[in-house]
Amino acid sequence: MATESSNGASIVTLKDVTKTFYRGKEPIHVLAGLDLDVPSGSFEALMGPSGSGKSTLLNLIAGLDRPTSGEVTVAGANLSRMSDGQLAKWRSQTIGFVFQSFNLIPVLTAAQNVELPLLLTDLGGADRKSRVATALRVVGLEDRMDHYPRQLSGGQEQRVAIARAIVNDPKIIVADEPTGDLDRKSADDVLTLMDKLNKELGKTIFMVTHDPAAAEKASVQRKLDKGALQ
């Protein structure tokens, strides 16, 4: 697992970004002229009430969606100008995802779930196995490799999801309410793990959360309200 240098240069830059959705013919302006700089190697938490545009912003940074206007530059790539296929490839190389409800594939073991992103690379079976073992060791679940998600606790499932997020050695980890479905103890374990990934491996983490305790773990807390950063 490579250690990222945290030189303070922006890894995420948003310039005058707007995002408008339509409900029928009625426009809903979710983000309005938003500017954002996220320094490389930072651990940022984004908070805000429901409907404030947190997930929309996260989707734009993760390359899951495109802005209506403005520029989104992440890890040197201008996402606004990339096709769906280019975005998919870029995501597989640059972004690690952690979701609220873990989103593991129930019919695959922990190791197979972690291996999924590696199927998109040219790595051979032995290399993939080695990287999967490393990722599971980082999250402390090397002894649960052959367990299916239903055989794991919620906290363990989320740690497997984090292993899946880091196995490709991404530059940025985006986490959408990573502790939302966990009890306090498991949530603390997951946050400690994310802190370790940030501090020891230098991974940039951008986390959306409602949980003030989770936000406190981050080095930067931002608040989004009505499509604008406070």
Binding site: D84, A88, S92, N103, L120
Partner: peptide, 14 residues
């Protein structure tokens, strides 16, 4: 459907 969304998110093409 949600699972396919996850696979797409982590980089699997259509």
């Amino acid at each position: 459907t949600n699972e396919y969304g996850v696979l797409r998110a982590i980089g699997f093409p259509p």
